[in-house]
Structures are given as structure tokens and as C-alpha cells.
Design a protein around this nucleic acid. Structure first.
Length: 338
DNA sequence: GTTGAGCGTT
């Protein structure tokens, strides 16, 4: 069986795959294979297209993008639990799941929350598109008490595609606290919205960068802090979501629920690339930052200081001195658990 | 059941 599969002619090999004989192969046997065809589709209900792999069994994102312009990744439905899983992507190379590509149908991911929008861009085959125009959440100040998230969405949708709105409410009463957040798909929309005041339900409102955002100091860690997670996001869903960026080796959600989580990647570069990002999981905007606090002055210096210094120390339990000489030299300062 | 500058999460 193995000898047959090893036959160098790619076309014959593809035939074997199509006939389903590959199902008997182990992952190690797959590793010896030269080329196969992976079934890919934009929609699970559509007819898949076959895309060639590389000789080492990986699939180039550029190969996918050649057929699906704008593609930024792949996902597939896990036959065991029916959940969608992301395909590992490292530097433009898609890696097969543990059991090989198999005869699963893979679904193309597009940037911007999986919504295909390449028809209104230049159509240049992607990869870069994903982070080229990075938007961030904007705080909306001065909202009338009565304004709902639907109201916000309706209003801001007149400027461009909205990917997230929030109205901050009192946990007990559910009453609005008079401010919220909005996130747009396109950076141009964000710029426009920030450039003017907004009459919303009879009050003038302002959209600004939230104070909670600051330049993120690089720290060499595989673990990221994920803030603003909601209780309905399960550890498994977190894992599946973040797997689109790289292999996830651990997910930790404190109990009782505290609205944050930790995600550890196999590759520290993947972790670092996500720091500072606002990502949207199940419609919830979460913020990724370093697992170890950066400069606590973020909390102390900005916005009049929501917390006292001692309180900030209580939160973190420890405090890295980012003004220390070693930080200025950018020597790696590893958290104790790293 | 009120209010009107701020700031989501360690």
C-alpha cells in the first residue's frame, strides 16, 4: 500500500486519493507522500474545488488564494464534535491536522470576520490584507440613557460596516452607563467617525480611542491575556478560535468567571503578533495583550487614574519595572510560569 | 425610579 502511494506520478496519486484509499494511511505515512489534492470550498454546501498540496504535505496559502482571492486561512468541521476547527497557518503555510488532510472539505476563511469583501477591494491576493488596515474599538461617550445597542448599530451603520457595538450597562439594573464601544470593518470608516461629533437620540456624542489602549511593549512569551471574554465563550471555543493563528497549547479561564482568559501558543511569535489586537469571537470584542502586565502606568497615568497604585499591584500580584535598564535593552524578561 | 464626565479587562 505504501509503495503504491509513494509512486511519484502526482496524477496517479491524486486518483488514489479520490478513490478514498488513503483512509488506511497513518499520519507518518502521509508525511512520506509527495502531493495530494485537498478539497476546498467557500461554503460547506457548495461543490468543493481540489487544490494541490506541496510535496511535504503542506498547502500554501498562496495556492488557496490563487483560487479564492483574498483567502487568509482554512477551517474544517471536526467530525468528532461537529465544531469548526482552524487549520494551522505559519508564515503562509497551511499544515494538515494530526490525521492528515483526509477527505474532509475545508472552508476558506476571509479577513474581517469571515465576511467576503474582496469584491470591493483591489482583489490582490491577500495574506497581507488581514492586518494592513487594522481597526480598533472606539469608545462612544455621551450616549443618552435610552440608547440601545441596536440604536447604536443602526446609527453607525450609516458610516460603514459595523462589526461590534456595546452599550455598557450596570450589572444589576441593566441601565446604560451612558457610554459604549463601536468597531468598524474599515479603517476609513473609523477615521471618518472619529473626525466628527454625533447626534444620537438627541445628544451629542464623541468617538475616541479608549484610554485602555496603549503601545504594547514586547515581551517574549507564548501566553497572552485575553480580556473582555464573556461567560458564554467556552475554553474549547477559545481554543478553536485562536487556532487560526497558530497551535494553541493551553487555554485557561479562571473560575469563578472573571471576564478574562489566558491562551498559550506553541509559538511565541504567534502570541506576540496578536498582542494589542481586538478580536471578535462570537460577536464579542476581546482584547489580547501580554499575559504579564506591561507598564502599570497605563492605569495610573491615563484618564485620571481609575485605580490607585496599590490596587494595581493587587491586581497583578507583581510588577515588572519597564523603566529598568534591562527592559530598555529589550532583554527578555520572562514571567515565572513561562 | 436619580445622573452627564468618563473608559472595557489582569
Amino acid at each position: 500500500m505504501l509503495e503504491r502511494v509513494r509512486a511519484p506520478a502526482g496524477r496517479e496519486l491524486a486518483t488514489a486519493v479520490l478513490c478514498g484509499r488513503h483512509n488506511a494511511l497513518s499520519p507518518s505515512q502521509w508525511a512520506t507522500m509527495e502531493m495530494e489534492y485537498i478539497r476546498i470550498t467557500e461554503d460547506e454546501n457548495d461543490e468543493p474545488m481540489e487544490i494541490p498540496s506541496e510535496d511535504d504535505g503542506t498547502v500554501l496559502l498562496s495556492t488557496v488564494a490563487a483560487q479564492f482571492p483574498g483567502a487568509c486561512g482554512l477551517r474544517y468541521r471536526n467530525p468528532v464534535n461537529q465544531c469548526m476547527r482552524g487549520v494551522r497557518l505559519v508564515e503562509g503555510i497551511l499544515h494538515a491536522p494530526e490525521s492528515g488532510w483526509g477527505n474532509l472539505v475545508y472552508v476558506v476563511n476571509y479577513p474581517k470576520d469571515n465576511k467576503r469583501k474582496m469584491d470591493e477591494s483591489d482583489g490582490s491576493s491577500a495574506v497581507k490584507v488581514k492586518r494592513a488596515v487594522k481597526t480598533s474599538d472606539l469608545i462612544v461617550l455621551g450616549l443618552p440613557w435610552k440608547t440601545t445597542e441596536q440604536d447604536l448599530k443602526d446609527y453607525f451603520s450609516t458610516f460603514g460596516e459595523v462589526v461590534m457595538v456595546q452599550v455598557k450597562k450596570d450589572a444589576k439594573t441593566g441601565n446604560s452607563k451612558g457610554f459604549g464601544f463601536v468597531r468598524f470593518t474599515d479603517y476609513e470608516t473609523q477615521v471618518k467617525v472619529m473626525s466628527q461629533r454625533h447626534m444620537i437620540d438627541g445628544r451629542w456624542c464623541d468617538c475616541k480611542f479608549p484610554n485602555s489602549k496603549g503601545p504594547d511593549e514586547p515581551v517574549h512569551s507564548r501566553k497572552v491575556f485575553v480580556g473582555r471574554v464573556t461567560e458564554d465563550i467556552s475554553p474549547d471555543e477559545l481554543r478553536q478560535f485562536f487556532t487560526q493563528y497558530g497551535e494553541v497549547v493551553d487555554v485557561f479561564i479562571p473560575k469563578p468567571f472573571r471576564a478574562f482568559a489566558f491562551v498559550t501558543f506553541a509559538d511565541d511569535q504567534v502570541a506576540q503578533s496578536l498582542c494589542g489586537e481586538d478580536l471578535i469571537i462570537k460577536g464579542v470584542s476581546v482584547h489580547v495583550s501580554n499575559a504579564e502586565p506591561k507598564n502599570n502606568s497605563r492605569y495610573l497615568d491615563r484618564g485620571g487614574g481609575r485605580f490607585g497604585g496599590n490596587l494595581a499591584l493587587q491586581f497583578h500580584g507583581s510588577c515588572w519595572n519597564y523603566n529598568s535598564p534591562q527592559m530598555k535593552m529589550r532583554l527578555p524578561v520572562l514571567p515565572p510560569w513561562y
